Amino acid sequence: MRIRRAGDRGLLIETDAPHRLNAAVRAAGLPGVVDVVPGERTVLVTTAGDPGRLAGLLPGLPLPDDDAGDAAPVEIPVVYDGADLAEVAELAGLTVGEVVALHGGADYTVAYLGFSPGFGYLTGLPERLHVPRRESPRTAVPAGSVAIAGPYAAVYPSRSPGGWRLLGRSDLPLWDVARTPPSLLQPGTRVRFVEAGP
């Protein structure tokens, strides 16, 4: 764990387990903590108090093994008819059915949120499905598109540009401003993709 100052009131912590450190900081009730924001390999902690004092407390925090506890995974129904499904199969040296089985058979964890509100970067994608992003991003990816890129899986919560490879689509709303919190997925949430009918 490497801790660096980030402005007057922040600490940027480099870690191999950002979603677990996020859960540990939130659960510890450390004095003065204002916000905790996990990223791919970092966690930003802002404080109303003394950042130096807080930095001394962080290395001793025990990290949970599973910050989702006994919570059941969020099940995301997927119709596997994505525009890039056949291309992913070709890149991976698999059949379309094998891609669907691998993607739907894995257990995922939300590592962090980013890119757009409610966009969860999910770890746990089988290595056979680690394919690169598209060379040319689409200008508009429909909300609910289930996609993969590199080591991550995701669902686009809203219509946006994007370069991930589309495997299918889901009707499950991931972002809803009337919900508290608005994002269905949070760092540490476990996720399963479940094949649905057309």
Score class of each variant (00 low, 15 high):
L174Q: 12
S158K: 15
P73A: 13
P182V: 08
D81L: 11
F115K: 11
P77V: 13
V96H: 00
E135I: 10
L44N: 02
L61T: 09
L12D: 05
Y112W: 11
L58W: 03
G118S: 10
A140G: 06
G197T: 13
A140V: 10
P18T: 02
P198R: 12
L185I: 10
G150W: 04
A92I: 01
V36L: 00
A143M: 06
Y156G: 03
Y121Q: 08
R20E: 08
F115W: 03
A101K: 07
S170M: 13
Q186L: 10
P126C: 05
D81Y: 07
P132Y: 01
P173I: 13
P182E: 12
V110W: 01
R165V: 15
L91S: 01
F115Q: 10
S158T: 15
A149S: 12
R138A: 11
P181V: 12
E90Q: 04
E135D: 14
A153Y: 06
Y152W: 15
E14L: 11
N22R: 05
Y112S: 00
P59F: 05
R169Y: 14
R53G: 07
A83D: 13
L44D: 04
V155C: 14
P73H: 13
R2K: 11
L113H: 01
A147D: 13
P64A: 05
I13L: 12
G118V: 09
R53C: 05
L102I: 01
L57F: 03
A140M: 09
P77G: 14
D70T: 15
I13V: 13
H130C: 07
L125V: 04
R134I: 10
L102V: 02
L167C: 15
R41Y: 00
A89G: 08
G163F: 14
V74H: 12
V100N: 05
D107V: 00
R169W: 13
N22C: 12
L54H: 04
A154R: 03
R192F: 10
V79H: 12
L94P: 02
